[in-house]
């Protein structure tokens, strides 16, 4: 049996390696950082891990409906395609920095892209 995307990327180890890199990029980007102004950084980090696990094709329990609910307050605050593209860009840059194989990156970006309508509540 061929390995899943999550296994090929490196599983939870890869998520751990990526989460701080990714979170740092998001927090430093003036275009999207205000969406992440939560007072509890550890809580935010846990959610970023869920995000990455999902994008890496790993085990998760989120439905499209959950993604809608999680992001609905952000959409009400103006979350749109331009923000989605920025976050997707940070995800890609994180993976490139970690020297993840090109084909894997393409698969991750396809998974992330597939959530666009749910995240933006369309």
């Amino acid at each position: 049996m061929s390995e899943s995307l999550f296994q090929r990327i490196g599983g939870t180890v890869a998520v751990d390696a990526a989460v701080d890199l990714f979170y740092r990029k998001v927090l430093m980007d003036p275009h999207v950082m205000h969406f992440f102004d939560s007072t509890d950084m550890d809580d935010q980090r846990a959610k970023q891990k869920s995000f990455l696990t999902m994008a890496f094709g790993g085990p998760h329990e989120y439905t499209g409906q959950d993604l809608r609910a999680a992001h609905a307050p952000l959409v009400a605050d103006g979350l749109n395609d331009s923000h989605f593209d920025r976050v997707a860009g940070h995800l890609q840059a994180t993976l490139e920095e970690l020297e993840v194989d090109e084909n894997c990156i393409a698969e991750v970006m396809a998974i992330a892209g597939g959530t666009r309508d749910d995240v933006l509540n369309r």
Partner: peptide, 15 residues
């Protein structure tokens, strides 16, 4: 503590 935590993280410390 909150402000310094964010700045230390952005300066490269792992959370």
């Amino acid at each position: 503590v909150q402000t310094a935590k964010k700045l230390a993280f952005l300066a490269g410390a792992a959370l």
